[in-house]
């Protein structure tokens, strides 16, 4: 490893973006997992990577965290180059991986102490810092228990606490809530939101839960190794432009035909409902009742969700995308050599 010696002031100037990515690419053999992406994350921002299984989210994070070498392009994290200045990048980032990385034989405190020593933290502050981060995730009274006795949510929280131990400038969270029940997911998010408010920290996270992406300042939707769109959640939803109206009718076939002939709209049918996408759906409903000519039993109007954003951009729902990525994913799990 060509580790530059760390000397002088290790903290780069505070101004400037937390993450800068230019043409970043990763190729595994013939397969391009990440196909040359560009983006910037501002300091203090909470930035989300959203995409189905196999989109390349983890691969991108691994490159930003110096765990994988890019095969193309460049990236700077906290002001340092992820290839040439690996140690400096590592010193300034905190990580919570998609897969757990705790030593379950050790206690919570021993895990944090291990981290503090590896990161060469000032010994005088380790104790108080440990208390701070454990208090924050509500595990202070459990600090001397073996991690093996922790629930999945507690382990995740401990990993978040550990990622914060050395006061990183950028915290990477790769699917921080994967595999957790909805209640625990919500609690993890309350910690993350808390963190955003109180800390001058940049958070870079990935998820494939659409609702979670709403917590971010900006999100990038990634699919098949490319960033398809990058904006605030509000702007993305506004960009879809249409609301979704679902009706149940006395005769769905007639309704679909009437929507086509009367309103020139293409409707889709699923689960006993007829769905159409229209701008300003609420204003359209009265006309629908007046002119459709087929009795309507119920109607619902939905504002666009990030699901709709994903759909409008990729032409698939995120669940379809997951299903088609399933085979690739399985191959990846078997072939993955970097250690989980």
């Amino acid at each position: 490893m060509t580790a530059p010696t760390i000397s002088g002031d290790i903290a780069p100037p505070d101004q400037g973006p937390a993450v800068v990515v230019e043409g970043l690419a990763k190729r595994y053999g013939d397969f391009e997992a990440v196909k040359g992406i560009d983006f910037e994350v501002g300091a203090g921002e909470t930035f989300g990577f959203l995409g189905p299984n196999g989109a390349g989210k983890s691969t991108t994070i691994k490159m930003l965290c110096t765990l994988a070498k890019p095969t193309g392009g460049r990236a700077r994290v906290a002001g340092f180059d992820v290839v040439a200045q690996r140690q400096l990048v590592r010193r300034n980032i905190g990580l919570v991986f998609q897969d757990p990385t705790l030593d379950t034989y050790l206690t919570a405190a021993q895990n944090l102490q291990f981290h503090a020593d590896l990161y060469d933290m000032d010994r005088a502050t380790v104790g108080s810092r440990m208390e701070q981060v454990l208090q924050m995730v509500g595990l202070w009274d459990r600090k001397d228990q073996q991690v093996a006795t922790f629930s999945g949510g507690m382990k995740r929280r401990l990993e978040i606490a550990r990622g914060l131990m050395h006061s990183p400038r950028v915290l990477f969270l790769d699917e921080p809530t994967v595999g957790l029940d909805p209640q625990t997911r919500a609690s993890i998010w309350s910690y993350i939101d808390e963190l955003r408010e109180r800390q001058n920290i940049t958070i870079f996270l990935t998820t494939h839960y659409m609702d979670e992406a709403e917590h971010c300042d900006r999100i990038a939707i990634m699919d098949q190794g490319e960033i398809r769109v990058l904006d605030t959640p509000e702007a993305l939803k506004a960009g879809v432009g249409t609301d979704r109206i679902q009706i149940t009718t006395a005769d769905d076939d007639a309704a679909v035909a009437a929507l086509h002939s009367v309103f020139e709209m293409e409707a889709t049918r699923s689960e006993g409902k007829v769905t159409i996408n229209v701008a300003e759906g609420e204003r359209f409903v009265p006309r629908l009742f007046a002119e459709l000519g087929v009795p309507i039993h119920s109607v619902s109007v939905a504002r666009p969700t990030l699901d709709d954003v994903f759909m409008s951009i990729t032409g698939r729902t995120i669940r379809d995308a997951e299903a088609s990525a399933g085979d690739r994913l399985r191959a990846a799990t078997v072939g993955f050599r970097g250690g989980r």
Binding site: I6, Y119, D120, D122, Q135, G138, W140, R198
Partner: peptide, 22 residues
Amino acid sequence: EPRPSTATLDVASVRVTEGGIA
């Protein structure tokens, strides 16, 4: 799940020391 505590995390209090043989 316990609520996040109100203790503020003091970023500046932690300094990661310089590298080297130590």
